[in-house]
Each structure stands twice: as C-alpha cells, then as structure tokens.
Amino acid sequence: MTDTTSRAAASTSRAPAPKPVRGPWLTNRRRRLLTGLALVTPALAVVTVFFIVPLIMTFWMSLHDWPLLGEHRFIGLDNYRRAFKDSEWLHAIRFTLEYTLIITPVLLIVALALAFLVHRGGRAARVFQSVFFLPVVIGFAAAAYLWLYLAQPGLGPLSDLAAKLGIAGRDTNWFATATSGLLLVCLMVVWKVAGMQMVLLLSGLQSIPVEVNEAALIDGAGPWKTFRYVTVPLLRPTLALVLVFSVAGSLLAFDQFYIMTSGGPSNGTITAVYQIYRTSFINFELGYGAALSAMLMVVLAAVSALQMLLLRKTDN
C-alpha cells in the first residue's frame, strides 16, 4: 500500500518538476501520450456515448418501472422476479435454445461439406467458392422476404416443387405450424449463412500442411481415418470459433422470425430478442425490456468468455 502510494507520488512529483532528467526522451514520451490520446479520443467518445453509457443504463433501467412516457419508479429486482415467472419470456428462451440447437449442427455439417468440396481444387473451385458465398452478402431482411415468397402456398416455387415431389399439397401453408415455420426459417438460414462458415473453415483447412495428410495416407490410414484422426484435431480451433459465432448469432435471431413467421402461429416462434422488442417497443415497458436484455447479456457474455478462452488456446 505505502509502496504503491510512494511510487505514485514519486511519479507525479517527477512529471511537473523534472530536475536533472529533463531530456528529449521525456518530452517525446509526453508527446506520444498526447498524440495517442488525440488520435484515440474521437473513437472513444463515440463508443462511450453509444455503447458504455447504454450498457450501464441497461442495468439501471432494469431496476425500474420505466414507461415510455411519465415517471419512472425504482422497484428493485421486481422485473427479474417477474421474468422468471413470465411464461411468454420462458417460452421465448426455450424456443431460442431449440432453434440454436437445431441450426448449429446443420450449418456446421453443410459448411464443412462445402469447404471440403472447394478445398485445393484449383481455379474452378475458387469460382464455386465465390458462388457458394454469394447469399452471405445479401441482408437477412431481403433473404427472408425472398424465402417468404418461395414458400407461399400455391404461388411460391418451393410449394410448387413440394407438390410435384408429392411431399405436401400445393396449397399447404408452411407457416401454419411453428414446426414447419421453423423448418423453413432454418432452410433460409442455411442457404444464407453456410457460405460464411465455409470461408472460415477453409482458412483453417489451408493452415494444415499438405504433408500431414499425405503422411497419414502413406501410413495406411484411409480417407475417413485421416479425416477423423488428423484433419479434425488440427481443425479444432477453427471449428470452435465457427461454433461460437454460430451459437451467438442464433441466440440473437430476430429478423428471420419477424419477417417470415411474425412470431406466429400463436407466438410459437418468438425468440428472446423478439420478446425484448415486443416488451420495450410494442408494450413500451422499457424497464422490463431492459431486465430481459440484461438476462440475455449474461448468456452472451458467457458465450463470449468461452470464445476468448478458445482463442487463447489457439494462440498457444
């Protein structure tokens, strides 16, 4: 304690009254600090006003009854107590987790297959890689409206195809049940996101030296064994990274459900972010919406912490 204070005192007393040490080194260092701060300040100001302040405010608001208009009132942890008994919120959480559990492995398998397909294939493979990536650059809203049309009963080509293949009648409404609605959303998301994961996985595959795989093959391991015992372990950091991205993205799903299913039928496809949206901006219960956000944030922070941990392992 005394040690640190005396050291702090020493450093502060040295700065304003430099006696013999006043050399170019010290002024350089100070100039470096000032220039550095000047360069960083604009970005920092924006991040403070639009990120750090709202972040702290989320927790502050969550302790209040905070309507859009009128007085807000401190109510302690009541919003959190309410959330744990709120069947709509609990259903939204459960649905979000279900969606995450379904979409994550499907996406990963499709993306891995695509990555293997175009890995080290020469010029043609690079062209195919660009094609597979194309849906990634289209926004979620545009993609969702495109697929909404594709699956329209009677009118949409997908319904037409399903009828021709004898899977379902031409006029089947795919959005009539939560399960088939979810299935369609998943199809759309795989179409739109698989290319992105493919590119990340390719960067991982390219970091595995060719010799390693060749050595395994020469040693008599078949293609499957080479994949299982050589490729997968070496690809693990990339796989972990892709998984964490995928999980975090799915936990935040909103656009595709808002547009394609409108959360229906009978609120069956409301996600966590969708419920926060409804609470804060349809019902205008900003305090309760903030409490739900804080709960979601805890889950996301846990996922991010996991990401950090995995990344650190990658560095070693």
Partner: peptide
Amino acid sequence: LRFRGSGVLFFIILATFMIPFQAIITPL
C-alpha cells in the same frame, strides 16, 4: 503510439465486440 493506458482503452473498445447492440437497444 503505445502510450500509457492504451492497452486498457483498446480492451474497452474491443469489449463492444462481446455485447451486440440487440442487448442494449432499449437504453440506446
């Protein structure tokens, strides 16, 4: 310009990575 405190400031800015704006939209 690895000035004093730059590490901390950099970390604060990177923290924005971890929390998406969907989670702080209400106070925003």
